[in-house]
């Protein structure tokens, strides 16, 4: 426990704020009937995760999270909602009355198991660091050690662009 009005205490308050943002966003994203509202919940949740990345000493990844996830992916999902549901959102009734409670039970069991595993394991001491993990180190490693995966991900993105163009264009002729 630390006093509230210190740097550590205020950082702790901000951290709890980010956790609340994640939980609220995930609740909205999974429970909202309106798909646009669910996408907004997803964006909130992803901004919260960006804050978590900031606390994990990686401001670069926090920036990328906001740029790619909260920016690009959410906007793409909104576009799909507009293209696929032109008459507004129709309510989909659930096939089975046990679907909601069953899903909750499975998810709670999974979360409880993972949390118990994380809390019970005695993690080893941190090893000595070989560099600071700054943006410069990330860029150098990406261009030397991980250059093959870097090229592969560019190829995957290219194939994804071409594939989505072909898939979305095919239906238009009919």
């Amino acid at each position: 426990m630390t006093p509230l009005l210190t740097v550590e205490g205020l950082a702790g308050v901000v951290f709890f704020g980010f956790i609340l943002l994640i939980i609220f966003g995930a609740l909205v994203a999974t429970n909202a009937v309106n798909l646009i509202r669910a996408v907004c919940g997803l964006a909130l949740c992803l901004v919260g995760v960006a804050g978590i990345y900031y606390f994990l000493q990686s401001p670069f990844l926090a920036l990328m999270q906001i740029l790619i996830y909260a920016g690009a992916v959410c906007v793409a999902i909104v576009f799909a909602v507009m293209l696929a549901e032109p008459q507004g959102v129709q309510r989909l009734e659930r096939a089975h009355p046990l679907a909601g409670p069953g899903a909750f039970a499975v998810a709670a069991l999974m979360t409880w198991g993972l949390a118990a595993l994380a809390l019970r394991t005695s993690w080893p001491e941190a090893a000595a660091r070989v560099n600071a993990g700054a943006l410069e180190d990330v860029g150098r490693a990406m261009m030397t050690t991980f250059v093959v995966s870097f090229e592969l991900i560019s190829l995957i993105l290219l194939v994804a662009i071409l594939g989505s163009l072909v898939l979305a264009r095919r239906g238009r002729r009919r």
Partner: peptide, 17 residues
């Protein structure tokens, strides 16, 4: 790790529901 487990739980709940 708890935050990640919580996110995974929400994700699985949403996928199933």
């Amino acid at each position: 790790l708890l935050i990640a487990a919580l996110l995974l739980g929400f994700g699985i709940y949403g996928i199933l529901k």
